[in-house]
Design a protein around this nucleic acid. Structure first.
Length: 747
DNA sequence: GAGTTTGAAACT
DNA sequence: CAGTTTCAAACTC
């Protein structure tokens, strides 16, 4: 996953900036694209979004928090001049207005599909005409709730984001604010790519899956992320899903998605892409009277090399007038994709949600999904009412919740390349306040051309809770499997101290520490705000999670500060975020400290020493004094033996405890259900009330007989005691018998 | 748990 | 680049 943000552009060193993109990015708008109708109605997309029975129909919700996206024109006829403008109002309304496309987008819109939305009662109307302009290779998602918003979007355009990816399943989720359109730049076969292409050897292109989620209605931000994967098999379809969840709580959000299905003809290698709307998780097929898919042609090299993916670009930029100063354009080049893997996407349809996620064991421990959710409509179930479909746009309320979408994705062992490219040098200076991308970089590389997976767009300074996240499939999958994620996502995860507190909340009666796998130890920073390398969390590119730090800024709430801190660290040391323990020179140990230690008093045999802590020996680059951390060191060997012995001992103890606990539990489970009474008495407890009463009856009977026979008191006592003894024996015998029976039954 | 030690990071 | 300071983890009691 890569993160690119306008702010980051300004923060990152100059060397990472690709000036070529600056020059070429504006040209993409004028790129000519041949639009071809796509007749492939199949959508090879896997999603677990609950199908909406009336997906093709208007869906209404009682809250204003719902996002409505309805194409007025039910026919998404193939258009060669198509641009999609999706404008959403501050009330989480998503409207599609073709008119905006021509006015705000620097593209010519000759053919447009418009959609309208209605508000019923508490619902807000959504007039959602939109246009798909294939001529310009752009899909512009503009969020304009009102005329003012539309104007604002026109006048104040955030820096466009150009994302180029190759063979990478791309998932982009975002929750933008109003007035910020998102333009999806579709590369043209004949047009020059605005972004430097890193692959493409002329072979067949592998399928790509791009999912763009625009959460919330208040703001749309250009965000694009991607991950690169190697293509292992030829695929004939590519999916691009644009998901537009609203800024409403999960329970009331109806994500609107566009599934762009790319079909590559194996014969003529002419890629075709169809845009299919998905409402409330239901794909509106071509047969749908509401939103028939549109077909556009993607300009992609007809590569046959599966290992390389042709250049596909997605430019997400605000609608801005051409006269405006050019805003920075960021490009993401993605490596090849292949194989079959599912990428799970978690929509950001949460209320004012700042989600922090850490993936245990993953190189990138966090993925941030931020939503600028405003008020939510209480009582809006995910299965909101769906109105009958009409040709006009229809509001819909989709199930929010943890909408999960899985698309085939191939693992990408290789790094994808992110090449941020401002259109102009001045573009960097022009910090779009609307642009609230959020950057989350698990491990920030000094050179963005080699960003690791996990890059996330970050918001501009002063930005709200809007954000975008590009989630590699494997991480998202892990996220959903993580209890922590569930906890965070379900409770409006708060960053900073609140986040930490919340993360510690017990989960199902078990402490979070027991149920959540934490990638590392919690930090205890007090003065560094967790924004310096003193903080292990920060140094490892992680958010603080379940830490004990104070005044923590290493969270989503302080991404601006965090970005600055990252920039500062990178300025100071470009290798700051790279692993310290790496492979040494040839002939040396496979693992060694990149910088070496400087220990003076510890003899490098304590955890103060980073080499020793990493369980590696000091190397020639270490500047330690009195080092004892070398191969032949007797002290080291002794320590190693002691450590090994201690470890074995601990393991044995742990195993013994586990075994004992298991046995006890097993024993209880076996006996309790069978023998215990309804009152919950433990097994073998046969001195129940009934047994005691019966015993007493027996004793009293003996007493009565002794009295009737005028026996001596001593004789009566003897008889009664004997009877008591008999009773006890019966009890013991019965208990033993019952135990044996229960054991046999359970076994 | 409080205090000390240590060395990396940050600063000058 | 070197010396100093700051910082948080490791360690000791």
């Amino acid at each position: 996953m890569d993160v690119v943000s306008p702010e980051l552009n300004s923060l990152l060193p100059d060397e990472i900036m690709d000036t070529e993109a600056i020059e070429e990015a504006p040209q993409s708008e004028s790129a000519a694209v041949q639009a071809e109708p796509c007749y492939d109605s199949t959508v090879p997309m896997e999603t677990d979004v609950p199908p909406n029975p009336s997906a093709s129909e208007d869906v209404t919700s009682t809250g204003n928090s719902q996002t409505l996206l309805t194409p007025a024109d039910s026919t998404l006829s193939p258009s060669r001049h198509s641009s999609i403008l999706i404008s959403s109002g501050p009330s989480r309304l998503v409207t599609l207005k073709p008119g905006l496309a021509t006015s705000t987008a620097p593209t010519k819109t000759t053919d447009s599909v418009t959609g309208t939305s209605m508000s019923t009662g508490g619902l807000q109307k959504l007039t959602a005409p939109f246009t798909i302009s294939s001529a310009n290779h752009q899909i512009i998602l503009n969020k304009v709730a009102s005329s003012q918003a539309a104007e604002a979007a026109k006048s104040v355009a955030p820096p466009p984001q150009v994302i180029k990816q190759e063979g990478q399943k791309l998932l982009v989720t975002t929750i933008g604010k109003s007035g910020q359109p998102i333009v999806l730049q579709l590369p043209h076969a004949g047009s020059k790519p605005t972004v430097v292409q890193t692959s493409g050897d002329g072979k067949a292109q592998t399928p790509q899956f791009k999912v763009v989620t625009i959460g919330g209605a208040s703001e749309l931000k250009p965000v694009v992320g991607s991950g690169g994967n190697q293509v292992t098999a030829v695929q004939t379809q590519q999916l691009k899903t644009i998901q537009i969840p609203k800024k409403t709580p999960v329970s009331s959000t109806a994500p609107i998605k566009f599934i762009i299905t790319k079909t590559v003809n194996s014969k003529n290698l002419s890629p075709q892409t169809s845009v299919t709307p998905v409402i409330a998780g239901r794909v509106v097929t071509q047969t749908s009277p509401v939103m028939p898919p549109r077909t556009i042609t993607l300009s992609e090299p007809h590569n046959t090399n599966l290992q390389n993916i042709s250049s596909k670009k997605i430019a997400i930029s605000p609608l801005k007038t051409p006269s405006k100063s050019v805003k920075p354009v960021q490009s993401v080049a993605v490596g090849g994709v292949g194989g079959s893997q599912f990428k799970t996407i978690i929509p950001l349809a949460t209320q004012q949600n700042v989600q922090q996620i850490q993936v245990p064991g993953s190189r990138f421990h966090y993925v941030r999904l931020v939503t600028a959710t405003t008020s939510s409509s209480p009582g809006q179930p995910s299965t909101s009412s769906v109105q009958t479909g009409e040709q006009t746009g229809k509001p819909m309320v989709g199930g929010t919740g943890a909408v999960r979408m899985s698309v085939p994705v191939v693992q990408a062992p290789t790094m994808k390349q992110v090449v941020p490219k401002p259109l102009t040098s001045a573009a960097q200076v022009v910090a779009a306040p609307q642009t609230q991308q959020r950057l989350i970089m698990p491990a920030i590389q000094p050179n963005l051309t080699n960003l690791p997976l996990g890059t996330v767009l970050a918001p501009a300074p002063g930005g709200g809770n809007m954000g975008y996240a590009v989630l590699p499939a494997q991480y998202v999958t892990q996220l959903q499997q993580s209890p922590f994620v569930t906890l965070a996502s379900s409770s409006g995860f708060q960053a900073s101290s609140g986040m930490q507190t919340q993360a510690k909340l017990p989960l199902n009666g078990v402490s979070a520490a027991e149920t959540t796998t934490r990638p590392r130890k919690p930090c205890n920073c007090t003065k560094s705000q967790c924004l310096k390398l003193y903080c292990d969390c920060f140094a490892n590119g992680e958010f603080c999670n379940m830490c004990n730090c104070n005044n923590c800024f290493n969270n989503l709430e302080h991404e601006t500060e965090r970005l600055k801190a990252i920039k500062t660290c990178l300025d100071r040391n470009p290798e700051a975020f790279k692993p310290k323990i790496g492979k040494g020179k040839e002939g040396e140990s496979d693992r060694r400290h990149s910088k070496g230690c400087n220990c003076k008093r510890s003899g490098c045999l304590k955890n103060y020493c980073e080499c020793y802590e990493a369980k590696i020996m000091c190397s020639s680059i270490c500047k330690c004094i009195g080092c004892k951390n070398f191969e032949e060191s007797p002290e080291r060997k002794t320590l190693m033996h002691l450590a090994d012995a201690a470890e074995v001992r601990v393991q044995q103890q742990t195993a013994a405890k586990t075994k004992l606990s298991s046995q006890i539990s097993d024993l209880l489970m076996r006996t309790t259900p069978v023998i215990s009474t309804g009152s919950g008495r433990l097994p073998y407890t046969f001195l129940t009330k009934e047994v005691v009463e019966a015993t007493c009856e027996c004793l009293l009977e003996k007493a009565r007989k002794a009295e009737q026979t005028h026996q001596l008191t001593s004789e009566a006592e003897r008889v009664i005691l004997e009877e008591f003894g008999h009773c006890l024996m019966n009890i013991i015998t019965s208990a033993g018998k019952a135990k044996a029976d229960s054991a046999s039954i359970n076994c």
